[in-house]
Design a protein around this nucleic acid. Structure first.
Lengths: 144, 144
DNA sequence: TTGAAAACCGAGTAATATAGTAGGAATTTT
DNA sequence: AAAATTCCTACTATATTACTCGGTTTTCAA
């Protein structure tokens, strides 16, 4: 019951971009260094996020990446769906295109996975990058 | 964000045993046939469940498997934890104490995964095999 | 106008996990 | 004795993961 590092690193990177939102394009190298992720690897992940429309790139020197929308309009679920595909604890209850299960509607285990899926999406879709930034702010103040 | 077939098949098998609880040992062959799972493969999964204390085996002819506890005392979470390990969307928020995260407590993405994990466990630990049997009964009556 | 900084692209790779398959030994009932 | 069944170990093909790497293109800034 695991996410791969794709989703894990992807959220870290997007959160990093959110924290620097408004400061112009952020070079990936900086993101990778701050979040302690392989730069080469992150390059591949950000390409997927760009094609998915979550970030925009600025090429050339002084270039980098910027969130395509403000932090309060990007939710964790958006990121995970793009990097890991539709949320589905088992393939027969995928958010997208339900592969026809042989047992069809008399499969009771299916309803269990639907409940699990719904609880995951409920959490992921309720948290935006802006929420995460606010939470960081709060916990930073607590430490002082 | 997927379970492997281990958890998927494992729950099916356990549910099958729950439906036949009280009818003596059920041969694995029957479970595999009814649930449409490879018998060879299921053999490996049931061995894990047995070592995990969720089923008991009766060897020899007319033997088979029986739930180790009544269906209302076995929850989905018990089965998944044994077959797939501790529930953890990412390894740094495993239910079981594992690797230290370098960022420790100032990692905000961590709190997201903790919320996801808690919502998954909340669902899985609230559904017992007995609940599933009751739900089956209800949906069977609806079809009539 | 040149050099450096960056995104972009595609290929390769070692390790691990997945989803089985298979054969045979041990145990128990009929 | 035969049949049914669990139990145990090993094998395998495929896919995924988490990278690494080399090179190309674009753009800015001195």
């Amino acid at each position: 019951m695991r996410l791969s590092t794709r989703g894990h690193y992807g959220l870290k990177a997007m959160y990093d971009l959110a924290r620097h939102y408004g400061a112009g394009p952020i070079p990936l190298k900086n993101v990778a260094a701050r979040q302690n992720i392989s730069g080469y690897y992150l390059e591949q992940l950000i390409a997927v996020l760009r094609k998915g429309g979550l970030v925009k790139s600025v090429r050339g020197a002084q270039g980098g990446y910027v969130l395509a929308r403000p932090p309060d309009e990007i939710r964790v679920g958006d990121i995970i769906r793009i990097l890991e595909g539709p949320i589905a604890p088992v393939e027969c209850v995928s958010e997208i295109r339900t592969a026809e299960c042989d047992q069809a509607d008399r499969c009771i285990t299916r309803t269990v996975w639907e409940k699990v899926r719904d609880s995951i999406t409920q959490v992921m879709d309720s948290i935006s990058l802006a929420d995460m930034c606010r939470e960081e702010e709060r916990s930073r103040q607590n430490r002082e």
